[in-house]
Structure formats: structure tokens, C-alpha cells
């Protein structure tokens, strides 16, 4: 597989995708934010969506999790049509979203935030085990467990946002800019954790502006520009691509 440009077929349009987005168009009022994006996520992969500000990355994620509705195009997840599915059913089907800007519940404690991540689950014992697991992943959160989430630092809030999404027992984890505004040492920690999460069996769709770090952990990458696909290809190939290097990797 090599790098493709634009919306050319990538060879990933098979039947074995966990998530298949085809020709997605999303509007805010009259303004098109996403114009014909197709992307495919296979079980067990880390797929990244990179591009500059306003490229339509977050809009794509928000449409997958049902916060926005597509104007045109299909979203198929595990054989189900996400475009008409209610937001709570999408979460119930195993898509958990750590949104842009963290969006933790600031006036609740860290623990209450984590419990809300498991809102749809009833299996008390497993919830407790998962809580233990995410606290292993982010030991800092254990220290802050009774603290009001809004009083934590940006990095800690970011960890909480990822941990909270994990509490939903996702099959597909949507991460929107998990490295935003973090100190370099924390960026490494977050990306290491994303790899660990994948190794523990969760498929990840990662939106990033930090293209270098994203391409390093991802298996496959889609480059968005002004709402449309610019380049697609295996992350390793894209990291070497001249166009990507000059535009996004500061080469």
C-alpha cells in the first residue's frame, strides 16, 4: 500500500471494517464543514485523522458519535447505520468519544466523572475493575479521585477525558486532540497510553494536530484539508511523504 491523493480508493473499502464512513457531508447551517470524506477503521487499528485547524476533523468525529447529523453519506459501524441512530444508542453500541476541549464535568469529582463514563453499564463488578484499570493507566487521577474535576490542571483534565471515555468499555474509541495544550512529557505519556489502550483490544480513531506524534503511533492515516481528503495511506508511508512533511511535520 502506498500514499493516495484526494478521495481515490484506498483499497480498504472491504467488508471487514469496524467503521466505514462513505462520502460524508456535514453542514453547520449553510456552511459545509465536511465535503465528501470516506474513511475506514479496521478492528484493532489506530487510525488517525490529521490536518490543520478547521479541516473538518472534529466535525467528522462529532458526526460519528451522533452529536451532528450528516447531510449526505453513510456511516456504518459493526453493521449498524449510525446516521439515524440515537446518541445514547451509539454509546451503548460501544463508541466512546473523548471530545475536543476535554468537556469533563467541572463541578463533579474525578470519580463522579468516571462513573458517568459508565452511565449505560449495569455490571457493577466490571465497572469497578475498569475503574481500577484506568487508574492504573493514569495514576495521577487516583491521587485526585475526590477532587472537583474543574480544579485540575489541563493535562490532568485531558487524562480524565480519556479515562472517562474508556469507562464506557469502548470497542471504538474516538480521541479528539488528546495532546492539545499538554507539556511535551505529557504528550509522550498520552501517546504511549493510546498504544497501550489499543494493545488491550480497543480500536482507536485519533484526531490530531500534532501530526508527527500521531503518525508515529497510527497504523493508517487520513489527511484532511478544508473538509476533504487530501492524502491517505499507511501512517509509516505518510510520515515519509514530502507533501506531508512540508505541510504538517515542519520539514
Amino acid at each position: 500500500m502506498t500514499v493516495n491523493s484526494g478521495a481515490a480508493p484506498t483499497g480498504r473499502e472491504g467488508g471487514d471494517n469496524l467503521l466505514a464512513v462513505e462520502d460524508l457531508h456535514v453542514y453547520y447551517g449553510n456552511i459545509a464543514a465536511v465535503k465528501g470524506v470516506s474513511l475506514h477503521v479496521k478492528q484493532g487499528e489506530i487510525v488517525t485523522l490529521i490536518g490543520s485547524n478547521g479541516a473538518g476533523k472534529s466535525t467528522t468525529l462529532r458526526t460519528i458519535s451522533g452529536l451532528l447529523r450528516p447531510k449526505k453519506g453513510t456511516l456504518t459501524y459493526d453493521g449498524q447505520n449510525l446516521a439515524t441512530m440515537r446518541g445514547d444508542k451509539i454509546v451503548g453500541a460501544g463508541i466512546c468519544h473523548s471530545p475536543e476541549g476535554r468537556r469533563i464535568f467541572p463541578r463533579m469529582t474525578v470519580e463522579e466523572n468516571l462513573d458517568l463514563g459508565a452511565f449505560l453499564r449495569n455490571d457493577k463488578a466490571e465497572i469497578a475493575a475498569d475503574k481500577e484499570r484506568v487508574l492504573e493507566l493514569f495514576p495521577r487521577l487516583r491521587e485526585r479521585i475526590t477532587q472537583k474535576a474543574g480544579t485540575m490542571s489541563g493535562g490532568e483534565q485531558q487524562m480524565l477525558a480519556v479515562a472517562r471515555a474508556l469507562m464506557g468499555q469502548p470497542k471504538l474509541l474516538l480521541l479528539d486532540e488528546p495532546s492539545m495544550g499538554l507539556a511535551p512529557v505529557l504528550v509522550d505519556l498520552i501517546f504511549d497510553t493510546i498504544k497501550t489502550i489499543r494493545d488491550q483490544g480497543t480500536t482507536v480513531l485519533l484526531v490530531e494536530q500534532n501530526a508527527l506524534a500521531a503518525l508515529r503511533v497510527a497504523d493508517y492515516a487520513y489527511v484532511l484539508e478544508s473538509g476533504a481528503l487530501k492524502l491517505t495511506g499507511p501512517a509509516r508511508e505518510l510520515a515519509k511523504n514530502d507533501e506531508v512533511v512540508s505541510a504538517y511535520l515542519g520539514g
Binding site: 458519535s65 452529536l67 446518541g87 454509546v91 466512546c96 471530545p99 468537556r103
Partner: peptide, 8 residues
């Protein structure tokens, strides 16, 4: 929106 993402 965050509440929606929790499945509420």
C-alpha cells in the same frame, strides 16, 4: 454535549 457522549 458531554452528557450525550456519556450515553445520557
Amino acid at each position: 454535549d458531554a452528557a450525550r457522549l456519556m450515553g445520557i
